[in-house]
Structures are given as structure tokens and as C-alpha cells.
Design a protein around this nucleic acid. Structure first.
Lengths: 194, 194, 194, 194
DNA sequence: GATGAATGAGACTTCATTCAT
DNA sequence: AATGAATGAAGTCTCATTCAT
């Protein structure tokens, strides 16, 4: 990759980070292209040099975050540790991401209200892949006898629902540190599984 | 209340039900006043006879649903049954509402992105009140020795997060009936509490 | 049709006439929705109450003019007169329309540069129908021995091309009156046919 | 002219040919500077090294085509042949150009919708000069007794209108070859003149 | 009470043009 | 000479809201 290309790639990522921030703060519909551009001291026209339109921009935000998260999850999956430990790590990491990327994770809630057909399929698929990580840990735990769960899908839904929800109430000024929250969530949700 | 007033009140409620429906289907931002009016075979102008503006309309939707739910919750609270049974009933009922009123419950997720200051305070307060129901059941259960939970707030967050999340993935054509889902959720979440 | 509906229909037609005017003056691409609205002392938003979008507006302009013209042409066709007389009348009338509705007729020149697939088919079809009027007169004239033309299609193309072109150079302040122009065109083009 | 200058001149002409092509295909308003540059594997910024702006670029396109055509027409004019033969050649050649340079010829239709005052005068003048070629042939033919036409201007308008119009319906896949079309047009239009 | 019509603010998007490198 | 990047003006369209009837 040439210097130029690397610069452009960097810029694209900068935009994505900024956009994530603004969208998280205001919500997708309330975040205008102008807002996003202003955050970067750009003009909205410039955004269109890098991204086809607002949806595309959002799609890339989502993709970036999800891809990074997925990589980490796979690393967790491949470690030689107990299923319980894996689940603990997965829950903690998922909480981290959910807290950091509030809206981006949240807006995936109803992708069909935001994304056109062009992206919808891929998004749903990637999300499913991500969710599967939890399925696999549960499966593994059950087969190893660590977990005693019959309704694996539902257990996964409960875990993801509970953890995704933190974005709703979480505030940096809250009583608990992020680590503490992660600790408690992991402990309680594991209690449900064993 | 005069006949006229009762008629108007009835109409208002009709509008609220319709609005809830449309908003649940399309999301707040995608549901136009026209959409809502169309559902009732009205024109959008008429809506303004009953409600000051879109926000007001939404606010009343939210209020209606929450008030009804609250009434039911208080009834549950006041029964002479074990805390576990209460929690089971509360979870099941909350799931019912969440499934039925998808978006309305969901949009409360980030009220500050939708509501102006005028309503925000009251909304936050009412939601807190509702959430407190779960706190009270947990408290009661702990003091009666039915539950063994140290982090009561977090436990409540997990329960509400998990249950609110059903709207995201629930589909009427899904594999499980609503009753089955409620059953499993209650069982698993209780397992976490005891 | 109720009074309301008639009023609305009238308004729609007013808009179409105004739009035709503005578009004729400035050309389709240079005529903004604001321009068109201003001509009617409206705001651009209002136009969208009557027409879905700019293309739709243009499509209706075109349709209105062509339908009216077609009606007249059919009347000419059905008269009991010589083919030469028919052609004379058709040419004169076509010139009248072309002069009056400059741009609208002209923009049909390359419909595919303006219209989406939705309308393109119908437009092409209607235009073909209109052009066919001339074919039928020529056919009739040839079979009656009034015209001596082998390449009927080409003759029609020449006639339509020549007459459509008047919009390009015609000016109300020109040396010749419209009637005079029509007279000459009809005479010369008939000379070509006989 | 230095090598550098000749190189630049060549490049300018390349750009003009490409621009003509793209504009012919898409129409002036739909052809973006980017489209034109892409055809040449350039970037749009570079176009501005050679031409002040889009209008200038178009103006030069027009000028190039018209100048070349004019040269050929003068050659025709100066030959020692009958006026009918001259007219035949002029019509055929004009058709050739019109078919080849579709849009460029067509967009001249309403120069005032595209060109600023700076260029408008010159354009109108050059076009008049070109049109005059036909006037001169007609004049000559009339004075030599080959043509019997009273309204010379109108006859010229008919000829130019008819021939310019071919761009509207002409398609490379059409039934008739270009030569055949030219043959027929020339024959029929001459029939009108004699 | 209801509605058809109108409004205007604001959003997204396009694109000719500029300019530093 | 060329280009990648940025800009800003302008245009289309949406929609909550208002209001006369």
C-alpha cells in the first residue's frame, strides 16, 4: 500500500471513529452528516469523497466494530481454558465493546429500519456469526459437563440481551467501574449457566 | 365526564393504540404522522386536534403502556405468594408487554434522543418506578432468604436487559410460543437469583 | 367529481401549465422546483403535495400536452378530406403545438436522459402513437395515389424533424407570423410528398 | 510550435474528442467532469489544467466540430458542380456529422440555456455562418433555375430541422445504413426544392 | 371535529471548482 | 502536468406543523 493509500485508509478510519462517536451520542437519525463532519473539522461534502452516503458510512462503522470484536472473540475461543472461563472472558469483552460503542451496537437492534437490502443480508449474517460465539461456548461447556443448560439458544439470548442492555443505563459517572460491572455480570450470568 | 368528553377520550386512546402499532412496526423516526393517521383512516391534520405534536403523542403512548403495566405489577406485588413466584410472574408479564409493544418499550432506550426536557424528567421517573418493582421483589426475596444476591441493582439490570431484548429477536413465526419463552426466561433468570 | 376534487384537479393543471412554461423557458435541468413554485406564488414544498417528484411533474406535463394533441390529431384523421389536406392540417397543428410548448416537446428528444424506467416505456409508446398519425396519413395518401413516396418512415421523420425544429429558432418577434410559417411548411413538405 | 506546445495541443484535442463522446452519450447536464476525465483515464482536476471550466470545455467541443464541418462545407461550396449536387453533398455530410456528434449538435439547440454571454455571441454567429452555407446553395440554385423556391429561409430551416432530427431517432442498430439514410434524405429534400 | 392544502426548516446528496503537493 | 482531497453552493425531497374552511 502506498503512502497515499495508507493516508486515505487512515482518514477513512478517522471518519468512522468520529462518526461512531457522534452517532452514539445523538443516535443515527439525529446525527446529521454535518454533525459528523464538524467533529472532524471537515465539511459534509468531504465525507462523500470517502463514503457513498450516510448508510454506507454507518455500515462501515458497524463493520469495523464488529470485525474487531470478532477477532478478539475468536482468540478467546481458541484458548486452552475451561468453558466457564471462556464465557467469563467473552461476557466481559462484550460488555467492554457495548459500553464503548453504545449506539453502534444499539442501532443494530433493528437493522431493517436503517439499512437497505444491499447491506442488510451481510449485517444479519455477521451478527449471527458473532452471536454464534456464545453458542459455541455454551455447547462446549454443556458437552464438557461444565454447564447444565437445556435451552442453549435462550441462554444465549439472555446473555446477549443482558449485556447489550448496559449501554442503556451505563454512564461514565456511574457508581461502579466498568471492571466491577463486568465482574458482576460475568458472575451472575455464569451462575445461570452452571 | 360528559358524553362528548368520553368520546374524545376514547378517540385519544384509539389513536394511541394505532400509533403504538405503527411506531413499533417502523420505529419512531420512520413512522410519520401520516402513517399513524392512515392506520386510523384519518388525516394527519386531525391528529393535532387530539395531541399537540408528535412528541406529545409518543409521550402518551409510552405513558399509557407503562401505566397499564405498572398497575398489573402492583397487583403482582401485593399478592401473598413467595418472592420467587412474584419474580416469575413479573418476568413473564414484562416479557408479554415487551413483545406486544416492541418499539414503544424500545424507544425508551434513549429517551433523551427523542423527548424534550418537558417530558424527559417524568419519563425517567416513571421508568425508575417501574424498574423498582423488580428491586422490591429482589429485596423481599433476599430478606426472606429466597434469593442469594448481593448486587441487587445489577441483578435487576440483567433481568430487565435480558427481557427487554426479546423484542429484538422475537418474531411471531419463531420456533417457540410466547408462553414457552416466558417459561424459560423465568426459570433461567430465577436460577441466577437463588 | 366533488367540488374539492375539481378544485384539486384544476390546481394540478395550473401547476402543469406553469411548469411547462418555466421548463420551456429554462430547460428541464435549469428549472428548479423553486422556480416552478415561484411562478405560481407557491413554495416548493407544496408542489410535492400534488406531484411525487420532479420527474413525475414533468411526465404529467408531457402527458397532458401529448394527450391533447393526440385528440386533435384523431379528429383530423377522421375527417372526410383528401390526404393532402389532412397532412396539411396535421403539419399546421403540430407546428402550433411545437411552438407553444417549446421545451416540453423538445425534452422528449432524449427521454432516456430524463425519465426513469418507470415512465420511459409509456412515453416512448405514446410518442410512437402520435408519430403514427403521420404514417397513417402518408399510407392513405399513397394508396389513394395522392402521394408518391416509397420511404414512408423516412418521409415521416423528415416531416417531424422539420416541424419539431421550429422551436429552436422560432421567436414571437420573428419576421413571419405563426400562420405564415405553418402555411409555408405545409406547402413545402407536401411538395416533397406528392 | 514547440514540442511541448504540440503535445499540449494534442492532449487538448484528445480531451475534446472524449468530452464530445461522453456528452453525446449522456447529455451535457448528465455528463460530469468526472465522467469526461474517466473516459481519458484522467482525474477531473487535470481537466482544469487544459480548460478553464466545463463551459469552456463544451465551447471548444462545439467549436472544433463546427470548424471541421465548416471547412468541409466550404470545399463543397467551391466545387464546380450543379447546385442540386452541392445540396445533396451538403445534406449528406451534415447528416454524417449530426449522427456522429449527436449531443454536441443537439445541445446547440438552446445555447442560451448552457452558455454564458461570454461565448454566446460567437456561437450564434458561427452557427449562422454554417447555416448560411445552405442559404447560399439555395440562392445559387434558384438563380441558376435549378430550384424553384420562394421562401429560402424556410426551406433552409426545413432542411436543417429534418437533418438535425436524425440524432433523435438514429441508432447504429437501425434498419437502414447511414448511407441509405443520407441517400433518402437528400433525395426527398431535393424534391422539395426543385 | 375534521381535512385539504400550504409551509418552511432541514436533511441528504451532487458536482463544478480550487489548491497544495 | 497531474492528482487527491476538500469545499460550498445549490438542488431535490421529507415531514412536522399550521390553518382556513
Amino acid at each position: 500500500m502506498s503512502l497515499r493509500e495508507r493516508k486515505a485508509a487512515k482518514k477513512k478510519e478517522d471518519i468512522l471513529r468520529s462518526a461512531s462517536l457522534v452517532i452514539s451520542r445523538k443516535g443515527y437519525h439525529n446525527a446529521t452528516m454535518e454533525d459528523i463532519a464538524a467533529e472532524l473539522l471537515m465539511t459534509k461534502g468531504s465525507l462523500y469523497y470517502y463514503f457513498k452516503n450516510k448508510e454506507e458510512l454507518l455500515y462501515r462503522c458497524h463493520d469495523l466494530i464488529l470485525s474487531e470484536a470478532m477477532k478478539k472473540m475468536e482468540e478467546i475461543l481458541s484458548q486452552e481454558i475451561s468453558s466457564a472461563k471462556k464465557m467469563e472472558m467473552a461476557i466481559k469483552f462484550h460488555l467492554e465493546v457495548a459500553i464503548r460503542e453504545k449506539e453502534i451496537f444499539n442501532l443494530i437492534v433493528k437493522p431493517e429500519q436503517i439499512f437497505s437490502k444491499e447491506h442488510l443480508g451481510e449485517i444479519v449474517e455477521k451478527r449471527a456469526e458473532y452471536a454464534e460465539v456464545f453458542d459455541r461456548i455454551i455447547d462446549e461447556g454443556v458437552s464438557k459437563g461444565e454447564f447444565s443448560i437445556e435451552q442453549k439458544k435462550m441462554a444465549r439470548m439472555i446473555i446477549l440481551g443482558a449485556t447489550n442492555w448496559v449501554q442503556v443505563w451505563h454512564s461514565p459517572e456511574g457508581e461502579y467501574s466498568n471492571e466491577k460491572i463486568e465482574e458482576i455480570y460475568a458472575a451472575y450470568l455464569l451462575k445461570m449457566l452452571v
